[in-house]
Amino acid sequence: MRISARNQIKGTVTEVRKGATTAHVLVDIGGQVVTSSITNDSVDNLGLKAGSSVYVVIKASDVMIGVD
Rank of each mutant, 00 (worst) to 15 (best):
M1H: 15
M1G: 15
M1K: 11
M1Y: 13
R2I: 12
I3E: 06
I3M: 12
I3K: 11
S4N: 12
A5K: 13
A5S: 15
R6T: 09
R6Q: 13
R6F: 09
R6G: 09
N7M: 11
N7E: 06
Q8I: 15
Q8G: 04
I9T: 08
I9N: 09
K10P: 11
K10G: 07
G11K: 05
T12Q: 12
T12D: 09
T14I: 14
T14D: 11
E15H: 14
E15R: 15
E15K: 15
E15S: 13
V16S: 06
V16E: 08
V16Y: 07
V16D: 02
R17Q: 13
R17A: 12
R17P: 00
K18H: 01
K18V: 01
G19Y: 06
G19M: 06
A20M: 01
T21F: 10
T22Q: 04
T22L: 13
T22D: 04
A23P: 04
A23R: 02
A23V: 03
H24I: 12
H24G: 00
H24T: 11
L26N: 08
L26F: 15
L26C: 09
L26S: 13
V27R: 04
V27L: 11
D28V: 00
D28Q: 01
G30H: 08
G31H: 03
G31Q: 03
G31K: 05
Q32Y: 14
V33W: 02
V33K: 10
V34W: 08
V34S: 10
T35L: 02
T35K: 02
S36F: 04
S36K: 04
S36I: 05
S36D: 02
S36Q: 02
S37H: 09
S37I: 07
I38L: 06
I38E: 01
I38Q: 00
I38S: 00
T39C: 01
T39L: 03
D41W: 00
S42Q: 05
S42N: 04
V43I: 00
V43S: 00
D44E: 13
N45A: 15
L46Y: 09
L46M: 14
G47L: 05
L48A: 02
L48N: 01
L48K: 02
K49N: 03
K49T: 04
A50S: 13
A50Q: 10
A50C: 03
A50Y: 05
A50L: 01
A50M: 05
A50P: 11
S52Q: 03
S52L: 03
S52Y: 08
S52R: 02
S53K: 13
S53Y: 05
S53F: 07
V54Y: 11
V54S: 07
V54A: 10
V54L: 09
Y55S: 09
Y55I: 10
V56Q: 01
V56E: 02
V57P: 07
V57D: 03
V57K: 06
V57G: 09
I58L: 15
I58T: 12
I58W: 10
K59Q: 14
A60M: 07
S61A: 15
S61H: 13
S61P: 00
D62T: 13
D62G: 01
D62K: 14
D62Y: 14
V63G: 12
V63W: 11
V63R: 10
M64D: 10
M64C: 12
I65W: 13
I65D: 05
I65S: 10
V67E: 14
D68V: 07
D68S: 12
